[in-house]
Design a protein around this nucleic acid. Structure first.
Lengths: 95, 95
DNA sequence: TTGATAGGCAAGCAATCACTTGCCTATAGT
DNA sequence: ACTATAGGCAAGTGATTGCTTGCCTATCAA
């Protein structure tokens, strides 16, 4: 679960999630192009690829193979419990 | 805002937030003792102090001076908007 | 005033991280 | 078969990070 926080700690990875939240099922190259044109992120293909690996390991991105293309989709489920971790603890103490 | 994510990326800092969520207004030494006894965190006083600095810079912890004591309190407000960043973006696209 | 307690400052170190570089595999088009 | 495209693997590098070490300041109690 700490992987989710580590994944969110990097600004480039947050931009990737921003982009995938806007448009699902993008390939690595599509993501690269959009990062540079829309977010002025100048990361190389390999850099973005490694970020996507990390995001997938954290459960924030799911992938789907189709021929030589690999499509990436955001998975927001791990995010749902994050903010509530500490907020819920406090409300349990003061019901 | 990226400071919040970076602050949450470290497991010791998350334990500190766990502890402050359970009990507010703790001094540095109190936090140190509770981290070791309850979470088996073996960090030194200086290490915990630096973590608290970082958490305060991220807006997740507020401090209050009283004589030679400095009390620390969790501030969950920055957490409220975190998880909703990407979830909200998706729901805006598919209303 | 002296000693103990609570905390702060800053330099240094080892581990981790983001990124590059270079090469390799696999699929698709011609 | 040949070339281009989409992606993967792995070693190396520079910067960041978490932590230690050593010393210093401030508050309180005797």
């Amino acid at each position: 679960m700490g992987d989710v926080f580590k994944a969110l700690a990097d600004p480039t990875r947050r931009h990737i999630l921003d982009e995938l939240a806007e448009r699902d099922d993008q390939t690595l190259f599509e993501i690269c192009v959009r990062l540079t044109t829309k977010y002025q992120v100048t990361s190389s293909r390999q850099a973005v690829s490694q970020h996507l690996e990390l995001l997938e390991a954290a459960g924030l991105v799911r992938t789907r193979r189709e021929g030589r293309y690999k499509f990436h989709t955001i998975d927001t489920r791990p995010l749902a419990q994050i903010a509530e971790r500490w907020i819920r603890t406090k409300s349990q103490e003061n019901p």
